[in-house]
Each structure stands twice: as C-alpha cells, then as structure tokens.
C-alpha cells in the first residue's frame, strides 16, 4: 500500500489525513512497527486506529489504559473458579496431573493484548492513552511491541500467530520512555488548518452548507489561536457546533447564532466570555 493509497483509503472512511500521518502509517505497515500517535485531545488519534481497521478489513481490539492497569486486565488471567472446580472434580488424580491440566488454554482468560496476538485473523490493536499507565506496564509492553510475543510463566512464550497492526495513542500526561518510542513509527497530529478542517466537515457532514462550514472552520481556527482560550476546541466539537447551527436553521455564523450555540464548542465559562467579547470571530461573514 503506497502513501497515496493510504490517504485515499482513509478518505473513503471519512478520515482526512495529512502527508506526515500517512507516511507514518506507511512506515508502520511496511516495517511491521507499532504506530505511536501523539497530539492534543480531540484531533483524531483514536479515530486513525478505527479507520485503519476498516481500511485493512481487520477487527479492532482495543485496550483502554488507565491508572493502575496491570497484566491481569491487559494480557491474561487464570480462571481461578474453574481451576478450583477442576481440582475438586479430580481429587483422586495425582497432583502433578492436576497441576498440568489446570494450566491450559481451557482455563486461560484472554485479555486484549493476548487476544490480539493469538487471533487467527490479523487484527488492529489499539492501545489507547498509554500515558495513563505506569512505567512497569510500559516496560512490559516492550516485549510485545518488539517481538510480538508474550511470556506466560506456566505456558511458556507465545508468539504471535498473526502480527497485529498496533496503534498507541498518548496525550502526553507523562513522557513515554525512549525505549518505547524507539520501537514505534511516530506521528504528531496537530490541530487542522482551516482547509483541512473544512475537508473534515465535508467528509463527516456532507449536507452542511458550504458558507456556514467555512465560517465555522475559520472561527474555530481563530479560537484555537487565541491565547486566552484555555480549552481549545477539538474537531469533534467543531462538528457538534455545525450540527447545532444547522439545527437552529442558521445559514451563516453571526453574533446571534454564535451566542446561541457557542456552548457546543467551548466548555468553560471564562472561555465563552472571552470568545463572545471578541466580535471579529463572528462578524467575518458580515464583512
């Protein structure tokens, strides 16, 4: 798959990607490396994994990371209840035999990481918000991401039946280790330019009025530029905003329609006040 083909395929799944992101996907696919995507909240980091799952025609396996996540929630866990039942049922057998029989696939509960490498069909593995995990878990991931294998003490090392296309996302809540970064192809997704945002609006909301879409894209870009706006609007919020304006029957973005709908795009009182105080944001269409 070439870079242009990647871009085109993503576009058919309504994901508008720029050249650097397509190049990073190309690197990850060509070299069988995980793709590490960083960027502000709401720029489409998780969406790229979903879109790639559709492009590659693979199921998406998602591991949502959080503080305190460990191997039992990410990789595997033994089904203790079932093991105990098996022990009770086979009391007359020799203990060695029982021990061997209860540490088998039958008693293994697969979690997303193990599921992704044992799948007969290749999958897209999304490890979302990796920065929320602690360093120990990140170190554990290294084996998986470098060798596509997981070691289970009772069963030995399990190699990937099929290599998953892995996407890791991070919001930079903490810096990731160099070891992890080195194993990945890297992409930084920035807030989109006005033209790219317009293309996203067209792709996601094909019925949107062109003039209204242009007004909204311009205003959102201006809001992101304003230093005093602390929570910058994401792409999803842009789409919400245009939907809200359409619901109101607005044809252009002016002060009245902005006042009624700005809460769809700005989520704190100080940001709303700051935005409404600046008339240049809303009057672009009137000039």
């Amino acid at each position: 798959m070439t870079i242009d083909e990647i871009r085109a395929s993503l576009a058919t799944r309504r994901y508008i990607a720029d050249e650097s992101l397509c190049a990073a996907v190309f690197v990850a696919l060509s070299l069988n490396r995980p793709l590490l995507v960083e960027g502000a909240a709401g720029v489409g980091k998780t969406e790229i994994a979903k879109a790639m799952a559709e492009v590659l025609g693979r199921p998406l396996v998602r591991l949502q990371c959080h503080v305190g996540i460990d191997e039992t929630r990410a990789v595997y866990e033994w089904n203790y209840q079932k093991q105990l039942l098996a022990i009770q049922a086979g009391k007359s057998e020799r203990s060695e035999g029982i021990l061997q029989s209860i540490f088998t696939d039958e008693f293994l509960l697969e979690r997303p990481l193990l599921q992704s490498i044992r799948s007969e069909k290749p999958v897209v593995l999304l490890i979302d918000e990796i920065d929320k995990t602690d360093e120990e878990f990140e170190a554990f991931l290294l084996e998986l991401l470098a060798e596509y294998q997981i070691t289970i003490p009772e069963l030995g090392t399990m190699r990937a039946v099929t290599k998953p296309f892995t996407v890791l996302t991070s919001n930079n809540a903490r810096p990731l280790s160099d070891a992890l970064r080195r194993r990945c192809a890297y992409a930084w997704i920035d807030y989109p330019s006005v033209e790219k945002e317009l293309a996203i609006i067209r792709a996601r909301n094909p019925g949107a009025d062109e003039a209204l879409a242009r007004d909204v894209a311009g205003a959102v870009a201006a809001l992101r530029e304003k230093q005093r706006i602390l929570k910058k609007p994401s792409i999803a919020e842009t789409l919400d905003w245009i939907a809200a304006l359409e619901a109101l029957g607005a044809k252009r973005l002016d002060r009245t329609s902005a006042e009624a709908t700005v809460s769809a795009v700005l989520k704190s009182r100080s940001d709303v006040e700051e935005a409404l105080a600046d008339d240049t944001l809303w009057t672009a269409s009137e000039r």
Binding site: T2, I3, E19, S20, C22, A23, A24, F26, V27, A28, S30, L31, L36, E38, D178, R181, R182, C184, A185, Y186, A187, W188
Partner: peptide
C-alpha cells in the same frame, strides 16, 4: 529497510522520503 520498502513501492520523491524518515527517526 524503509528505503528498500519505498523503492519497492516506487516512492522515491524527496517529500515522501523526508516524511517517511521523519516518522521513523523523530519521536517528538
């Protein structure tokens, strides 16, 4: 390996090589 892959895919223009190498070598 990446340059070989780019060559095999017939992608040898400067911009493509630049962006691909960047994804490979730059991590922030």
């Amino acid at each position: 390996a990446l340059l070989a892959a780019l060559g095999a895919a017939g992608l040898a223009d400067r911009q493509t090589v630049r962006e691909s190498l960047k994804a490979m070598l730059a991590k922030s």
